[in-house]
Design a protein around this nucleic acid. Structure first.
Lengths: 230, 230
DNA sequence: ACTACGGTTGAATCCTGAA
DNA sequence: GTTCAGGATTCAACCGTAG
């Protein structure tokens, strides 16, 4: 297949690049959808030694507020008019993420991803954590393609034995967002690619993608996942 | 039954009073739990004419940020040490409510109330609204009484034909919170009583309550609901 | 195609001890 | 004192296997 270019960026690759460096190469108003899972800024540390030893620490997971601010502004810049944005986050920093999101986009929903299992946490003093949030909004006005879906979505998380990244999101969920807010051939962007779940989802739904990931190990895994699709 | 007093406040009544006026009468560190459903600050107006004509406009529903700020500080003052707080809110102002909540309490969860039916809203451009949030936290450290419950709670909303107040919450949900974070005989506080759902729930769970409501019509309904219990 | 049962897990938090 | 890192702890829900 011939290489497709957008400015100096080649489509349908997982670039090993710092997110702000990479995104600066993308022209204004050129991508059709953003689906992204940035660091939650909560200094995540898995409870399980197996997980701790299996994965690197998550890059930029603390004190990266400024990175998120700049990232969202850049997402706004590169999106075409009348497009959609999906940003994963947890309740711990929902106030910060919502504020930054609303600087750039019209927030339409805080979607709740209701997971099958609940986590650990403060077992005696708190409810069992079972959800994550997805900020959903528009640049301009974007119509949903699928029939109406509620803002609480039940979706199994990936069994830990199959995880390739500590915070990997199910492609089932990502593909739902991609189908619902883009058309075949559109360019989907994710600046925090991890092991490429957004890229894989975009490919499987017949969309193009531009993705960056800073960790070389994850880039390698992402490319293997993509190669396995062909 | 003999009247019980807390300072100059009589327990187990729905007072027709401005919330800040009323709460100022409550002594420091005297109540055991706060479960409250303040105005969401979103200029609520039902889409349905039937609903619009059935209910008065919600008092204090816009430009009451300062009221919420003062209210939460007062809730902090009147709570005993090592107690819990539940504050309903919607995603539209979750950033403001979270910030104000965290000024006064340790936020432990953002509980998602997953309603059975979804609402209307922007049919083509947004996901169907199906949830509300409840900020849950501690003053000091409060242990939950029931076995572990996830932070996504499925609970039917009250059918609109049976609503006595436009934003009435199901007692099933309120009673769950009351059982989980207080003991029989404790005083449950709600400064935005509406038609007395928190009062009814507290009574049914064998707790005492202190509640205020500014709208005389709703106070009357609340008292009828309470009388019907005896 | 069922249920029963034991093993595993979790974007976590608490607690302890060191710096 | 205070912060910080690392190990221990916890249990409802899910998974796989066996019956």
């Amino acid at each position: 297949m011939a290489k497709q270019l957008l400015g100096s960026i080649e489509l349908n690759r997982v670039y090993q690049l710092d997110v702000l460096e990479g995104i600066s190469l993308i022209p204004d108003k050129s991508v059709g959808l953003v689906v992204t899972d940035p660091p939650y800024l909560m200094n995540y540390r898995s409870n399980r030694r197996v997980q701790r030893e299996k994965f690197k620490h998550i890059a930029n997971d603390v004190d990266s507020h400024d990175l998120i601010t700049k990232y969202l502004a850049e997402c706004q810049r590169i999106l075409k008019d009348d497009t959609a944005v999906y940003v994963f986050c947890s309740w711990h920093n929902i106030d910060f993420f919502k504020t930054e999101f609303e600087r750039n986009f019209k927030l339409k929903n805080i979607i709740v991803w209701n997971k099958n299992n609940h986590g650990t946490g403060d077992l005696k003093g708190s409810y069992a954590p079972k959800h994550e949030f997805i900020l959903f909004g528009h640049k301009g006005r974007s119509l949903l393609r699928e029939k109406r879906i509620p803002d609480v979505i039940n979706c199994d998380k990936i069994p830990s034995a199959k995880l390739t990244h500590p915070t990997e999101k199910p492609t089932e969920l990502l593909k739902l967002f991609i189908r619902n807010s883009s058309d075949p051939g559109d360019i989907v962007f994710d600046g925090f690619a991890g092991t490429g779940s957004t890229a894989v989802s975009a490919r499987e739904e017949g969309r193009n993608f531009i993705t960056f990931e800073i960790e070389p190990e994850y880039v390698e895994v992402a490319n293997k996942r993509l190669d396995a699709l062909v």
